[in-house]
Nucleic acid binder design. Structure first.
Lengths: 207, 207
DNA sequence: CGATGACTTGAACGCCATCAATCGCTGTGG
DNA sequence: CCACAGCGATTGATGGCGTTCAAGTCATCG
């Protein structure tokens, strides 16, 4: 894994801080670095010429992103909140890969994990309705960032919408509806602090 | 590449024929074999419990499919038309990979190419309208199977619809509209023999 | 020929987008 | 401390794009 690799200090690396909304790299830019989220959250997206946006993934602490096989980044990456990331020069990774065959294996595994996520997301984007999309989103985030059953979503409704292929209003409506029906609870008045009350029910809604 | 690998006969392999509509492997089945299309066409899809279908990719001659990193297939694959495929036992591939580091590289490259296609398709599914989706589909197929500017589509309107996240009626309507506007021509009365008359125009529609 | 299956075309509906107003929290300055 | 601006989120009203339902057309094949 990259983490292991970094800890072995076989590669040059450093930690960087990105403030909220900062662009980390841009689509079609040379991919000179690879990143691992230490703290915070990152979104990767593609744009159409008229500004329509599709977020391909959210990257949370521990996740690696910006790993390309070609020379150019295929997404634009931005910090959703104040984020610190571990940055590794790609060349040093390449060098290690040449000497350590197991590393290529690791890269392959990471890429395959990526692929799997994206393939499932295609099914969601192409064939699920808004209810199912939002339920699936909540379950995904529940699994990834629930600390003691309280999710602190770093992303806005617009980000969620652009991840699910919906409008932000539809996301909001579905969340309200799920709240009304008792699937979840908003902590205090915080709209991004969510407690899942009925994960099994959400899974039912999603299927 | 797998082709090279096969031609070197370092692995056990053979050719198989699949008749129209045959299932080649099923999602969640053990992935014991890897496939390369020799002739014909294959579709890979996922299903929701109620039968809604999302086709993740069409595989045409030369394409490799069924390559998994985990032990299970992530899609169901079916022959769209009479298809012959080269079938390779996965274990033999694994064996070669262990001795030949360059092979892992090849696998990584293939996986990354896959990833790239799927990432672009996410943008299409999540953010493009029906016109743009159909235009993009025509351009993709134009690039992949145009022999002298005549495309012989192996797949039905339903397949196209399930690839683009649309209904088959919408696909049909958009094709008719593109025909009316002079972007394409149907050969004779064959609805699957298409001549692209204005690829640049289609690219404009897609963007 | 009649049957079948793929495709097209039409009509009506419905889901979700769009437009718009309001709410609620936060931070800032008087 | 309060007024107010500003931003994100919610909620409501309306409309449109694409789905669904339903004929109808066309080619293929028994």
């Amino acid at each position: 894994m990259l983490r292991k690799l970094v800890s072995q200090s076989k590669v040059r690396s450093g930690e960087f801080k990105y403030s909220q909304g900062t662009e980390i790299f841009r689509q079609a830019e040379p991919a000179d670095y690879i990143y691992q989220v230490i703290e915070g959250a990152v979104r990767s997206h593609k744009l159409l010429s008229d500004g329509r946006r599709q977020i391909g993934a959210f990257h949370l602490p521990g996740d690696i992103f910006g790993l390309e096989n070609g020379d150019l980044h295929r997404f634009t990456a931005e910090a959703i909140v104040e984020t610190t990331a571990c940055v590794v020069k790609r060349q040093s990774l390449e060098r290690v890969v040449k000497t350590d065959p197991a590393m290529v294996r690791s890269l392959l595994t990471m890429t395959t994990d990526n692929l799997q996520h994206v393939e499932n997301h295609m099914l969601l984007l192409g064939r699920k309705n808004s209810r199912e999309k939002v339920a699936a989103f909540l379950l995904e985030m529940h699994g990834r960032l629930a600390a003691a059953d309280v999710m602190a979503l770093p992303m806005s409704r617009r980000d969620i919408a652009d991840y699910l292929g919906l409008s932000l209003e539809t996301v909001s409506r579905e969340l309200s509806e799920l709240h009304r029906k008792g699937y979840l609870r908003f902590l205090n008045g915080m709209q991004r602090q969510i407690v899942i009350l009925n994960a099994a029910g959400l899974a039912e809604l999603d299927r």
